[in-house]
Structure formats: structure tokens, C-alpha cells
């Protein structure tokens, strides 16, 4: 280990969670360093949102350890959760107001954040119920981004957006990340999105929720082209374990897409038992 200013890190060790008698998460392990992106995918109801809320400190930890030394976390919830009596602009500026930033600066920064997610001044002056679903979710995203967080927790941030907007926001987020070393933990149902953005994709299995597979993607996110993303997604989807997680039928044995002709030592989909996972973290 090199000495120096330690990079902030989010670390989750052996975390379990139950709602009443219903165990939702079991023995979860993950780490996320500044400047990295972790994507969490898995079947609906497997406990992804619960895990994210635990990381955010919104749920009390029932078992295991959670260590988080990011100072300015921000979160985008699965539902927009906007205040209906405030305009979109005021909703975006909510966190800034909580920090005691004067109204003028708040407005300017909210406008800039709105612009980044393609919301114009007209949209910012409207109340949430006057906006479309996708616009509401962009307001929620802007509300998190405007705080310039060092840790961004995203729960299906782009699921309501068209592919053009999605691609644009992906690029914008990656550039933000490169600029100021932002760490992202994102939940998504879009494997392609996970493969495009993340350094590590964690596949969760349900009943009870645990991390079953892991895919490390060494190529820097900004250098990934469409062809690479398609190949890597196909590679992930060819793993029998991953297919089982999502309840997909097994593939008839055909030619396995060679994962990455360009990259030497392309990632393998690693299937994890809890013990193996700890080891894989250690190296």
C-alpha cells in the first residue's frame, strides 16, 4: 500500500437485511473507490434498492459492516420523489438550499444542472405534475448532480428515457467522472448500459438477494465503442449462471462470442460463493 491521502471508499462487508421475517439480502460484499463505477443488475425484487438504501444510510444496518468515507453523497431514488408544491427548478435546488447557498446562486446552478439533463427554463418553471415521467426523472437526476457529489447512488436513473437522451447523459456522466473522480453505484435493468458505464458489473440473484456473479471490465469507459459494448454484453449473457439469475432458458450450445478480441486477458464472468468473493476482493 502506498501512503498518501487515502482515496475515499465505500465498503460493504457481510451485510444482511430482513424486513420482518422476510430475508431480503444475505452476506453482501462490495467495495467502491473514488472515480470508479459499480453497476448492480439482477431480477426485479432481489433487493437492489434495499442495498442502495443501506449504502445511503437510510435503513439501519441489521448485520455486517458498512464503511463509507465519502463526504458528499447524493442519491437518485427509483421514483422521482419530487416535492409537488415546488417547481422543477426549486426541486433541483433543494439540496443547495439545505446547504445555505443564497437564492441567486441556487437558481444559476439549478439552471446549469437542468441544462445538463436537457431541461430548459420553461420546464424548470413548471410543477412536477405538469412534467412527463421522463422529465420528472431528469429533475430528480439534476437534483442529485447539482450538489457536485463525490458519491452518486443511482436507482434506475435512465429507465424512463429515450435512447438518444440516454446516450447523451451517459457521455455527460462519464465526463463528469473523469473531471472530478466521482464514484458511482448504479442500479439498472439494462445490461448494455451496465457494460457501457461500469468498471465492475455485479449480478445479483434473488431469494434471498446475494451477489452471484461479477464481471470486471478493464477498458476505460470513455474508450468503449458500440461494438465492444455489444460483444461484452453478449458475453455476459452467455454465462449460464447469469442466465439462471434472470430466469432465462439455457442456451443451445453454439459458438460462444469471443468476448474481446482486442483486449488481452478479457474479463471472465466470475461466479462467486461468499468465500471466493472475499478472496477475489483481497487480490
Amino acid at each position: 500500500m502506498t501512503t498518501g491521502t487515502p482515496v475515499p471508499r465505500l465498503a460493504v462487508h457481510g451485510v444482511s437485511h430482513a424486513y420482518g421475517l422476510h430475508t431480503v439480502l444475505e452476506n453482501i460484499e462490495l467495495t467502491l473507490d473514488a472515480g470508479r463505477t459499480l453497476a448492480l443488475v439482477g431480477p426485479s425484487g432481489c433487493g437492489k434498492t434495499t442495498l442502495l438504501h443501506l449504502c445511503a444510510g437510510l435503513l439501519t444496518l441489521q448485520g455486517g459492516h458498512l464503511h463509507n468515507d465519502f463526504g458528499r453523497p447524493a442519491m437518485m431514488f427509483q421514483q422521482p420523489r419530487l416535492l409537488p408544491w415546488k417547481t422543477a427548478g426549486e426541486n433541483i435546488a433543494l439540496g443547495l438550499k439545505a446547504m445555505g447557498i443564497p437564492a441567486r446562486e441556487r437558481r444559476q446552478r439549478a439552471e446549469r444542472a437542468g441544462m445538463a439533463v436537457e431541461l430548459d427554463a420553461g420546464a424548470l418553471a413548471q410543477f412536477p405534475h405538469q412534467l412527463s415521467g421522463g422529465m420528472q426523472s431528469r429533475v430528480a437526476l439534476a437534483r442529485a448532480l447539482v450538489l457536485e457529489p463525490d458519491l452518486l447512488l443511482l436507482d434506475e436513473p435512465f429507465s424512463a428515457l429515450d435512447i438518444g437522451l440516454k446516450a447523451q447523459l451517459h457521455q455527460w456522466l462519464l465526463q463528469e467522472q473523469a473531471r472530478r473522480g466521482l464514484a458511482m453505484l448504479m442500479i439498472t435493468h439494462d445490461l448494455m448500459e451496465a457494460v457501457r458505464l461500469a468498471d465492475t458489473v455485479l449480478v445479483m440473484d434473488s431469494g434471498p438477494g446475494r451477489i452471484a456473479h461479477r464481471l470486471d471490465l478493464p477498458r476505460p469507459a470513455l474508450q468503449r465503442d458500440d461494438a465492444w459494448v455489444h460483444r461484452s454484453t453478449a458475453h455476459l449473457l452467455h454465462s449460464p449462471g447469469v442466465r439462471r439469475c434472470f430466469g432465462l432458458p439455457p442456451l443451445a450450445t453454439g459458438p460462444h462470442p469471443s468476448p474481446d478480441a482486442g483486449d488481452a486477458g478479457m474479463a471472465q464472468v466470475i461466479t462467486l460463493s461468499p468465500v471466493q468473493y472475499k478472496r477475489s476482493l483481497a487480490c
Binding site: L58, A74, F77, Q79, K86, L94, K97, A98, R143
Partner: peptide
């Protein structure tokens, strides 16, 4: 849900009163 949101964005108590 809105209470969680307020906690996440660290709204001080007086803002919770006036804005929430």
C-alpha cells in the same frame, strides 16, 4: 418516501418544516 428524501438531501429541521 419524502422523509427519506429529506434525510438524504440533509434538510435542516427548519427547512423540513417550511418546505416539507
Amino acid at each position: 418516501h419524502l422523509k427519506d428524501m429529506a434525510a438524504m438531501f440533509r434538510l435542516p429541521w427548519h427547512m423540513r418544516l417550511t418546505d416539507l
